[in-house]
């Protein structure tokens, strides 16, 4: 029988106990299980101060509890400004920005990527840089007495191929994004 629940109470009945280990296996996620929920991270977080969607302590809590889908599909994990203030202060050395990176890396593999990050990754694959250095730009550089910069860098695309990021982004070879 369904129990009676109030609408505004988030009730979680299924947790994934393996999620915390999964995150701990990612580079940067190693120390996540040390978190004792002191709130030091959130207290100094400028993003959290402005946007209630982002609360690093709560995100870590959700990971430890095993709310896998909710975390990976949430847009909040993309809100970390990687300022490393919390990283410096965390008394348990949880390295929160690196944990966020670990979560984003998993999310990407699961098919969730923030459009802004996808766009950046694709630009870099295409030009070797975030911004294309076109003829106009190089002309300006030469005018200023600065060296010309080659347009594009094919090795970057090769790197995407080697690491599998190319497949991930194009949705081929098991890539879901």
């Amino acid at each position: 029988m369904e129990s009676v629940r109030r609408k505004d109470v988030p009730v979680v009945t299924v947790l994934d106990p393996k999620f915390k280990y999964e995150v701990a296996r990612e580079p940067g996620g190693e120390n996540i299980k040390y978190c004792f929920q002191c709130g030091t991270c959130t207290s100094g977080c400028k993003v959290a101060e402005l946007d209630s969607k982002y609360n690093p302590r709560k995100i870590i809590r959700m990971v430890i509890l095993g709310m896998r889908e909710r975390v990976l599909s949430g847009d909040f994990i993309w809100l970390c400004a990687t300022c490393y203030t919390c990283h410096e202060r965390c008394p348990q050395d949880v390295r929160i920005p690196e944990v966020m990176n670990a979560l984003k890396n998993i999310a990407v593999r699961e098919g969730y990527i923030h459009p802004a990050f996808r766009a950046q990754a694709e630009l870099i694959a295409g030009h070797g840089r975030l911004y294309e250095v076109d003829g106009f730009a190089n002309e300006k550089r030469t005018d200023w007495g600065l060296t010309e910069i080659p347009q594009g860098c094919p090795e970057v695309a090769e790197i995407y191929g080697i690491t599998g990021l190319h497949d991930l982004l194009s949705g081929g070879a098991g890539g879901k994004v």
Partner: peptide, 22 residues
């Protein structure tokens, strides 16, 4: 419950403390 990350001093010598009240 919730540890502040920092203390800021104001000009009057008073101290500003930001924390997350868990």
């Amino acid at each position: 419950r919730g540890k502040p990350g920092e203390i800021e001093e104001q000009e009057d010598g008073c101290l500003r403390v930001v924390s997350e009240d868990l």
